[in-house]
Amino acid sequence: MGHMDAKLIDPAGFAQARTELGAGFVRILGYFREDGTKSVLAIEEAMRNRNATALVLPAHTLKGESRQFGAERLGDMAEEIETVARRCVEYHESPEELIETVVEIRNCFNETLVELEKASSPLVARKPAVFGRRPEGAAPSFGRM
């Protein structure tokens, strides 16, 4: 199963995170943005340097934080980077096989943030107001009939 086969955001995982984090959800999502940005930069830098050891920790961190919010695809990509990097360290290999995944991870991270922030916005649940006319079939709520 390729990364693109995984859902960008698992709705059940996202809902669980919102419930568990409660009022702190938006604040923690902000931390995810900051930490995730640092992790992606560290992954890219480690790949440029062909340093498998330096890939492990930021990939591990990004994996855990992504899965906390139900970000399946990003979590899967980070897990692949972490797993392959650990193997490369153990066998003294270059992590070259990860180039495509490392190149894709920034776009996936950005796309994931957009979706998480859109889904967590208090404006998402609101319906646009209809001024001047009542929507068809709506009962009057105040004023004259």
Results as ranks from 00 to 15, higher is better:
137 G>V: 14
70 G>C: 03
25 F>R: 01
62 L>N: 12
67 R>H: 04
127 K>L: 14
109 F>L: 00
47 M>D: 04
65 E>P: 03
22 G>S: 10
97 E>D: 10
117 E>Y: 14
56 V>T: 12
47 M>L: 07
75 G>W: 05
144 R>C: 04
92 H>Y: 01
53 T>P: 01
138 A>H: 13
133 R>A: 09
19 T>L: 11
135 P>Y: 13
29 L>Q: 02
40 V>R: 08
18 R>I: 02
87 R>P: 02
129 A>Y: 12
129 A>H: 06
57 L>W: 05
118 K>G: 05
115 E>H: 04
119 A>E: 08
34 E>G: 07
23 A>V: 13
51 N>S: 10
134 R>I: 14
79 E>K: 12
53 T>V: 08
102 V>S: 09
71 A>P: 02
90 E>G: 09
84 V>T: 12
138 A>P: 01
35 D>N: 13
105 I>C: 07
74 L>C: 06
51 N>R: 02
28 I>Y: 09
79 E>Y: 03
5 D>R: 09
86 R>W: 00
22 G>E: 06
9 I>A: 12
74 L>H: 08
68 Q>E: 05
58 P>C: 04
107 N>T: 11
80 E>L: 15
131 F>E: 11
143 G>Y: 08
109 F>Y: 14
142 F>D: 13
26 V>H: 03
77 M>N: 02
123 L>P: 00
129 A>L: 15
22 G>F: 06
126 R>C: 04
123 L>H: 06
89 V>L: 03
110 N>I: 03
120 S>C: 01
25 F>K: 00
86 R>P: 00
80 E>V: 06
82 E>T: 04
7 K>W: 04
46 A>H: 03
